[in-house]
Design a protein around this nucleic acid. Sequence first.
DNA 1: AAGGGTTTGTGCTCACAATTACAAACTTCG
DNA 2: CGAAGTTTGTAATTGTGAGCACAAACCCTT
Lengths: 215, 215
Amino acid sequence: MEIPPVVIDRLPLYTRALSSLQTEGRDVVSSQELGTRLGVTPAQIRKDLSYFGRFGKQGRGYNVQKLLDELHRILGLDRQWRMALVGVGKLGRAILGYEGFSPQGFRIVEAFDASPDRIGQRINSLIVKDTRDLENVLSKAPVDVGIVAVPAEFAQDVIDTLVKCGVRGILNYAPIAAHVPDGVHLKRIEPVLALQSMTYYLKSSPRPTITAARG
Amino acid sequence: MEIPPVVIDRLPLYTRALSSLQTEGRDVVSSQELGTRLGVTPAQIRKDLSYFGRFGKQGRGYNVQKLLDELHRILGLDRQWRMALVGVGKLGRAILGYEGFSPQGFRIVEAFDASPDRIGQRINSLIVKDTRDLENVLSKAPVDVGIVAVPAEFAQDVIDTLVKCGVRGILNYAPIAAHVPDGVHLKRIEPVLALQSMTYYLKSSPRPTITAARG
DNA sequence: AAGGGTTTGTGCTCACAATTACAAACTTCG
DNA sequence: CGAAGTTTGTAATTGTGAGCACAAACCCTT
Ligand SMILES: NC(=O)c1ccc[n+]([C@@H]2O[C@H](COP(=O)([O-])OP(=O)(O)OC[C@H]3O[C@@H](n4cnc5c(N)ncnc54)[C@H](O)[C@@H]3O)[C@@H](O)[C@H]2O)c1
Ligand SMILES: NC(=O)c1ccc[n+]([C@@H]2O[C@H](COP(=O)([O-])OP(=O)(O)OC[C@H]3O[C@@H](n4cnc5c(N)ncnc54)[C@H](O)[C@@H]3O)[C@@H](O)[C@H]2O)c1
């Protein structure tokens, strides 16, 4: 059975909410409550989950721990994922310093750059290596995912190189319509595109008058 | 007429490709070529554009400059957009230093933080101000969009404050399911969610053997 | 143990978005 | 100028996903 990609995209949302609930000490949650928290209809959640099995109990809801485990298994989050960062500029350094990846099992194990200024630099117990050594390094210690944070004009080349090294997942921050062969999975992070579609909705309605924020 | 949000989300892609073509000195482009570049079917592009008018010429294609102008007008990109950044940490500084916003008409005109270390600091000709002054500052000089780059636990509060200040667009980098009232438009940037759905596809197919990258 | 209250899982319906297909309009070239 | 070749815009069709509604299953209280 083929599962709709939109469904897959929603599952991580569910895991995140379930993690919160777990931290709050909750044992059980209904699709109703989960939906309210996430801004999704309860029916949508139940339908999504039903693609993979029957995880709930009627009259009760879902066991938080159990559903979390199931979703981790389904999404492949029950293991570590090795990642390589290419481009250690302003954004690249923020990504390297980001504490949000490792708790979810994503580890940046290599960092590459083309600039002599950056190569050899130590950032967070990681030595920045020369992009030209990318193939050699990754052939010895493969990674699952490549994070691309180089200027737009070099991004497609970097992606091609990563693909040649057997990387099957690309997280691309560069503002280009990148091309990857079948079997390679590409996700784009595009704040500018997000803003440019948002303005469509902002432009019509007027900026509201602000009730003076005194005191 | 109500235009499907997916259509609006694709328009910025078109503008970006058209800008490239313009730089390349091209006068005219067909939906065919545009589609190939973007990985979208030509019919999809024609259908999307037809929501807004008839911009092409049969047997010829679209005038690059004209279509670009039309799309800019449609999306509200024919003006400047004022933005405020909240959270000048690792990511926030990368955002402040990003050169990709202003060419598209997006200007960060204020930056706020809560930490005494950051407040008063000058970054790119911008003085970081105290979050507690956010309402006062924005009531005098309103912004259109708020960029949220604070830790997850403070994000909803920051968003609520921004909304109270009349901000109608939020670009949220914090990993939470934020809630905003009707009329406020929220876009999320979520690399971790992107990775967590990607692994669903990566987990099944095996890591390919690498054809030794010698020489 | 029985009944009232919850909540799941899913068949069904409806809405909408993608694709197809083609006439009409334009270009180019002989 | 006419014919062959392009390409648009859109009507019609297909495909797909979201929401509804309800039977079945379970909890809890008395
Ligand atoms: N900074 C942001 O907030 C932000 C936001 C969205 C997107 N982006 C995108 O991310 C990318 C990087 O942005 P940035 O602000 O960090 O730019 P930057 O100029 O600070 O960093 C780019 C880095 O890439 C390196 N580089 C160049 N060519 C390379 C190659 N072939 N291989 C390896 N490294 C190479 C450079 O040496 C530099 O260190 C750009 O495409 C940008 O559009 C940045
Ligand atoms: N760094 C990344 O690549 C990255 C990627 C994705 C998402 N994020 C998210 O972006 C946010 C920031 O990440 P970061 O790595 O820059 O963290 P960081 O700790 O470096 O920066 C957070 C900043 O926010 C400030 N702050 C805290 N509370 C505030 C408040 N109420 N008002 C104003 N400022 C406040 C802090 O003083 C600090 O300067 C986090 O939510 C993180 O999950 C970061």
